[in-house]
């Protein structure tokens, strides 16, 4: 793995690193639009059903949601620190530990999210399966919960990919695989931060709407 020659289409390792970095950013721009489709649906139906959305939003578990947000923000900080250790050619074990912490916090997030899903099901909040709500607000609320499950579900899928990626990199970093080829860590980091970024917007839209009244 400690191979210091660029792939054949590149003139230098610098160019190769640059290209990988650029590729991930273009991919993330694409991902932004992917989540953007869901946000557009949310925008439109929130315009139509402000009361239903507000009422439904208060049924989500704000405590667990807030804890989860903090967990994800912390994981991003660990990831950022891991990337910086790697960039400074620090110890591979330090990078490995930081990445392991990142992945474990990601797992914790998924655990909390799963608990929430169970609770939602128990509260009859799953559209198409078991949904009960005040009839006057039912339509907006049902659309809200549909989007809630799709948005958090797709976010969870992305996070799972991130956990597998970062977990694998943690092991490889611990074994010293990135000693002189560090860009994969930074690129995995970009993806992880993006998944965090999505959640930063999902949190107020799904958990905080309608809390004041």
């Amino acid at each position: 793995m400690a191979d210091a020659r660029p792939a054949e289409q590149f003139a230098s390792l610098d160019q190769q690193r640059d290209v990988a970095h650029a590729g991930m950013w273009v991919f993330l721009a694409s991902e932004t639009l992917f989540f953007g489709g869901l946000l557009a649906a949310y925008t439109v139906y929130r315009i139509w059903y402000p009361e239903g959305f507000a009422a439904a939003s208060t049924k989500t578990d704000v405590v667990l949601g807030t804890i989860n947000t903090a967990v994800l923000l912390t994981s991003s900080a660990l990831m950022g620190a891991g990337v910086r250790v790697a960039e400074a050619r620090g110890s591979g074990r330090a990078v490995g530990l930081l990445l392991l912490g990142t992945a474990l916090l990601g797992l914790a997030f998924l655990g909390v999210k799963g608990t929430e899903y169970v609770k939602d099901a128990h509260d009859h909040l799953v559209p198409g399966y078991d949904f009960e709500f005040d009839e006057r607000l039912r339509r907006g609320a049902e659309l809200f919960f549909l989007l809630y499950f799709i948005m958090t579900g797709i976010h969870a899928v992305h996070l799972t990919v991130g956990i597998l990626l970062v977990g694998a990199f943690a092991v490889r970093a611990w074994r010293g695989a990135f000693a002189d080829r560090l860009e994969p860590v930074a690129i995995a980091g970009l993806y992880w931060h993006f998944v965090d970024l999505v959640w930063v917007f999902l949190y107020p839209l799904l958990y905080l709407n309608g809390r004041a009244g």
């Binding site: 650029a22 993330l28 694409s30 991003s76 950022g80 970024l197």
Partner: peptide
């Protein structure tokens, strides 16, 4: 997150275009 963690503040060229384009097209959508 974008400026510090993802180091956009230090980035150039295509990275900034990608970030800007993603944001602009999201606003359109």
């Amino acid at each position: 997150i974008v400026l510090v963690f993802m180091e956009l503040a230090r980035a150039t060229g295509l990275t900034r275009i990608a970030a800007g384009a993603g944001l602009f097209w999201l606003c359109v959508l």
